[in-house]
Design a binder for these strands. Structure first.
Lengths: 210, 210
DNA sequence: TAGATTGTTAATCGATTAACAATC
DNA sequence: TAGATTGTTAATCGATTAACAATC
């Protein structure tokens, strides 16, 4: 099938999956779009549209959709059937938090390796081995990891990024507040904590002014 | 002026501000939209549009815009003139990382207070006092804080959210992977770490299929 | 003056929402 | 059958991009 999917929709999909798993665990076999919509705070029309794009199995009028089948379709669509592996660079506070973050498992994501300039002898943290950054190219190349997470200080970010790309990484999740230059075929997703908070605060102000 | 601004634009604004401050520090007094665009990886047309919305001072043809003035306008627009204060609930790994995150200062954001169920005697972390959650209503109400950050386990999130809203909080930054129910006048911004990573991974897969 | 860069107006693009017929 | 819920097609909404005249 492989339709092209909009970014916002792609962000909603994992949430459907999580909710549907919850339904499944509570023994709910069928559910309507409007129910999902309510639980997720979306419009039912949007949910219907999204699920149609993702699943070939049509929904049943007056009954809704088969929860189990929908889970399978979503997992297939999102490519969760095999584990997605990632490496993390920069084991500071935020890096450590990500290493120990439980939520990744739920999305079949796993950080398999971490690097830091301070790690001299290989050590473990939250079950993930941490190596010195000078091992990065060697190890990442060997393991064929495709996703890199950059949690380094801004000034090291571009260098780390280059090393990751050289080692075959095709997608980068960047927490450093800088714009990274990458080849065209590499995807960068920027996460800026401070920006998010500032964004929220301005939204608040905008609202107050009205 | 107080124009309505689109969400994606509102997210770009803090980045302009950061870049312009960097220019200012290096003694650059004027800059063109195309330069900003290049440094930030955006299109120059978009930058021009954005800056027009934010600043009443027109740009000068063949010269660009006054960096200092633009900084002032952006700060004014984003409401950075007075500090924005936030409280954080849930001092786990991620919560701690946020408490110690340096980047907030740059956006004039400050976490002034934190709460956790494990904090029995008030303690300090990264310069922020941590109280037991049962002090939440009392302290947040008294300090008139408007922004709450929820970094608790999912099952506590809605309860904490209700308490924050009761105490006058008008904007919530939610890291728990659940949908929060709030009154209409309260803004919720959801941040889901796992979702972001999963999103990146599916994007990668979609690309590979092509 | 010539060239760069601006602001404005219109065109395009893409996502969400609405309306409604189809069906278990 | 009646009612709920579906899928499809069209309308709306909103953001980005393009084109171009204006100007220091």
């Amino acid at each position: 099938m492989s339709k092209t999917v909009s970014q916002p929709m792609l962000r909603r999909l994992p949430n459907y999956l999580m909710l549907l798993r919850k339904y499944h665990d509570t023994g709910i076999a069928f559910c309507s779009s409007s129910r999902i919509a309510e639980d997720l705070g979306l419009s039912s029309i949007q949910v219907r549209k999204d699920l149609q794009t993702v699943s070939d199995t049509p929904g049943v009028p007056n009954q809704g959709r088969d929860v189990k089948r929908l889970i399978d379709d979503l997992e297939g669509f999102l490519g969760y059937n095999d584990f997605s592996q990632a490496v993390l660079v920069g084991v500071g506070r935020l890096g450590s938090a990500l290493l120990s973050y439980e939520g990744f498992r739920e999305y079949n994501m796993k950080i398999v390796l971490a690097f830091d300039t301070r790690a001299h002898t290989p050590e473990m943290q939250s079950g993930v081995p941490i190596y010195h950054v000078n091992k990065l190219r060697q190890l990442v190349t060997r393991l064929h990891v495709q996703i890199g997470i950059i949690v380094t200080p801004s000034k090291s970010a571009q260098g780390v990024c280059d090393a990751l790309v050289d080692s075959g990484v095709k997608a980068i999740w960047n927490f450093a507040p800088v714009h990274l230059s990458v080849p065209e075929d590499v995807i960068v997703y920027n996460e800026n904590m401070a920006e998010s908070l500032a964004f929220l605060s301005s939204k608040l102000r905008n609202k107050e002014e009205k």
